[in-house]
Nucleic acid binder design. Sequence first.
DNA 1: AATTGATGTATTGTCGACAATCGACTTGAC
DNA 2: GTCAAGTCGATTGTCGACAATACATCAATT
Lengths: 233, 233
Amino acid sequence: MDKITEQDGFAPLGREGLVERVARLLSKAIVTGQLTPGTRLSESVVAKQLGTSRAPVREAARLLENSGLVTYHANRGFFVRKFTATELDNLYEFRIVIELAAVRRLIREGLGDTGPALAAQIEELRRLAGPPHDMLTHVEADMQFHRLICNGSGNPRFLRTFEQIALETELTIVLIGKLYEDAHRLAETHVPILEALQSGCEQDAVDAMFYHLDVARTLVTEQFRKLEDESPK
Amino acid sequence: MDKITEQDGFAPLGREGLVERVARLLSKAIVTGQLTPGTRLSESVVAKQLGTSRAPVREAARLLENSGLVTYHANRGFFVRKFTATELDNLYEFRIVIELAAVRRLIREGLGDTGPALAAQIEELRRLAGPPHDMLTHVEADMQFHRLICNGSGNPRFLRTFEQIALETELTIVLIGKLYEDAHRLAETHVPILEALQSGCEQDAVDAMFYHLDVARTLVTEQFRKLEDESPK
DNA sequence: AATTGATGTATTGTCGACAATCGACTTGAC
DNA sequence: GTCAAGTCGATTGTCGACAATACATCAATT
């Protein structure tokens, strides 16, 4: 079994550093929309709210900067990241490059236990399609499917880069407010990818993944442009 | 440990933050080999040497962590990154993915003023081929050629990702101690890439870049394995 | 002798305070 | 009324000190 989540194995449990905890709380607050894009992340305010000093908050903010959730201006502090339609398009283009490369490598290295893991994740997506429809949980499960592929590719750099864009991808999806009209449909769109991967045909797998991501890219970008027009600036 | 001193002479653009200065000094010390892989980066020691407190050093170290030059172990601190042959191979595989994607995009978007910039950079490489043969300067000029391509691609994510792996790439090359036997030859290996880019044929450009990077990958990996055998930890 | 447990030391983790810097506001001249 | 310079308040930048943790050493037990 591959190690993805931090709860399996003997990874220290109470050993989560304060910085990581703050980073997790902040990222959750941002992704869930409690902190809207553009708002300032005052170190002292956050520190006071969490009952810590500014140092851990500052470090956590720098971590989030690498995840693309916040931007940092020298001598001005951290701000929740704002996205433009172009940036969003660039994000998906980049994501496609990374994930297609991961798919190619995964095929060449052999699926291994990534196959069953992907199948199980699709089951999870189907289960989540039923009520209650928690958007964030759903998006995270979707991302987990793609994370499994990057993780199974065998080159840790793909997983690492995926993690760097995973949170901002989640954020943009949540910003838009919907991923698919039908949650059941979303789950099924992952099936062709898995089947192509299991067939062992590299080109089929690449095509399936590209189609999947390209559809998502179009949906997300168009929806975002629509929202941009409704509330210009 | 040698003292890390700041090279005077240039203050790039008005004010540079203390954190950035420390990060620059540290990265230079690592890439030049003053700090060898595996050595501990004691916050207090570095801070004392640079005449600052630990806070900026700590932030700078976290920046370098993103550049892959140092690793961080919770409650143990920062260490200069050690590379294995496999990691190095993964690095080059990843680099190929990124740069090939950048080339594709650059072709589609049109060269613009990237063409002349690339030509000028080749000239710079030729100039540096003459004495004195400063390895680091040479490597940096080589990387600059590739940086220009990522920058010209039009998608900032490619440049951003390139920057994340640029320093560790430089480090591995310097670790090996040589890039090419003949520095003049290195400069010329970039010519086919530029010509293919100017031809406008996407496949030619991709092929040229792939060949270039694949040769480098083989050279570096083999040389590294040789060094690994000589001094097997 | 090997392993376990206790102890000491060095380093990181966190904190609160002060200094430097930026942006907004006020004030004044034209 | 507009613009410029000066001032003020708030926030980040940096610092030194203290607390918590890990590693090494050594003692005690089997």
